[in-house]
Amino acid sequence: MELLVAILIGVLFMIGTYLILTRRLLRIILGTVLLSHGAHLLLMTTAGLKRGAPPLLGEEAAAYTDPLPQALILTSIVISFGVTSFILVLAYRTYKQLGTDDMEQLRRQEDE
């Protein structure tokens, strides 16, 4: 299981990295979304996978999975939602204002 998830994380990071290196704003934003998915799974995995019941004490299980990374990831999901929507709207405004979503063209406009 760990190996499978590790490979999944690798794939997410790889594609996320590839996307943020491209020139289209939308792809860059999608890339950051993938990177945060990858980071969330990475946090999960470092604590060990399936090492017990979900961290709900009502289950009265002998062992629970680690609740700490889950709390961290929950925070992270919400924050990345906020950040993603912000850069999304930034991209949207940039396009409306400047008429392009190409990073290279944006850069040239800045120089003028």
Binding site: V5, H40, M44, L49, K50, P54, T65, Q70, I77
Partner: peptide, 10 residues
Amino acid sequence: YFVILRAPDL
């Protein structure tokens, strides 16, 4: 995957 990994909240 979060369901599989026992994280219902997530």
